[in-house]
Amino acid sequence: MKKTIAICSMLISFFAFGQEQSGSKQFWENLKKHCGKSYEGVVTEGADNDAFRNKKLVMHVRNCDENIIRIPFFVGDDKSRTWVLTYKDNRIQLKHDHRLEDGSEDKVTQYGGTTTNSGTPALQFFPADQQTTDLIPYAASNVWWITIDETSFTYNLRRIGSDRLFTVKFDLTKTVATPSAPWGWND
């Protein structure tokens, strides 16, 4: 009987305390370390005529709640974009919140997807969801992914079945001045 109790106690300890955090939870915690900080980025993959090239690109990990992280992405003076990451049930959802200068929602907004597995501490994939397919039919084959490590954060888009590829890489080793509020936000 004592042996059975000891084994049960060990199993409870293992399952309650011995399990490591999932890849998505570790990724989430790694990203939260940057809350309040801003970083400059460069386009490393994309068309030569991409509207992002030759403009200052800044991400600001502006708002970190327990289950939502909002990251405005500024392209020059354009403050219309915010990446909204939501952590729920060991998965992460990525949505693109697009606003007009008056703060109202753009007609193409809230597209993105949810991870299909827990991913890794450094990488999360977001295949296009049904809302994206309904809103932007040609984006039904989009896959976004985000990487994060000690020195960089990348935001990536690949449209499967096409040559569409976009990557912007942010240098996490040096912060930059925090931009003013994105469109639709109040400081």
Rank of each mutant, 00 (worst) to 15 (best):
Lys3Arg: 14
Thr4Met: 15
Thr4Trp: 15
Ser9Pro: 07
Met10Asp: 05
Phe14Ser: 07
Phe15Pro: 01
Ala16Trp: 15
Phe17Glu: 03
Gly18Pro: 01
Ser22Cys: 09
Gly23Arg: 08
Phe27Gln: 11
Asn30Asp: 03
Asn30Ala: 02
Lys32Thr: 13
Cys35Ile: 00
Gly36Met: 05
Ser38Cys: 13
Tyr39Ala: 07
Glu40Cys: 13
Val42Trp: 14
Val43Met: 11
Asp48Tyr: 06
Ala51Met: 14
Ala51Gln: 06
Phe52Thr: 15
Arg53Trp: 12
Asn54Thr: 13
Lys56Tyr: 13
Val58Leu: 04
Asp65Phe: 04
Ile68Gln: 03
Ile68Phe: 00
Val75Gln: 09
Val75Ser: 08
Gly76Pro: 13
Asp78Ala: 01
Lys79Met: 00
Arg81Asp: 15
Val84Ser: 04
Thr86Asn: 10
Tyr87Pro: 01
Lys88Tyr: 15
Arg91Val: 14
Lys95Arg: 14
His98Lys: 03
His98Phe: 13
Leu100Gly: 04
Asp102His: 03
Asp106Leu: 03
Val108Asn: 11
Val108Thr: 11
Tyr111Gln: 08
Tyr111Arg: 07
Thr114Pro: 05
Gly119Gln: 09
Thr120His: 05
Gln124Val: 11
Phe125Asn: 08
Phe126Ser: 01
Pro127Asn: 00
Ala128Cys: 09
Ala128His: 14
Asp129Arg: 06
Thr132Asn: 12
Thr133Glu: 13
Ile136Val: 08
Tyr138Thr: 13
Ala139Met: 08
Ala140Gly: 11
Val143Ser: 06
Trp145Asp: 03
Trp145Ile: 02
Thr147Tyr: 00
Ile148Asn: 00
Thr151Trp: 14
Thr154Cys: 01
Tyr155Arg: 10
Tyr155Met: 10
Asn156Leu: 10
Asn156Ile: 08
Ile160Ser: 14
Gly161Gln: 03
Gly161Asp: 06
Asp163Cys: 03
Leu165Val: 08
Thr167Ile: 04
Phe170Arg: 00
Leu172Arg: 07
Val176Ala: 02
Val176Trp: 05
Ala177Arg: 12
Thr178Gly: 01
Thr178Gln: 09
Pro179Met: 09
Pro179Thr: 05
Ser180Val: 07
Ala181Glu: 13
Trp183Ser: 11
Gly184Tyr: 00
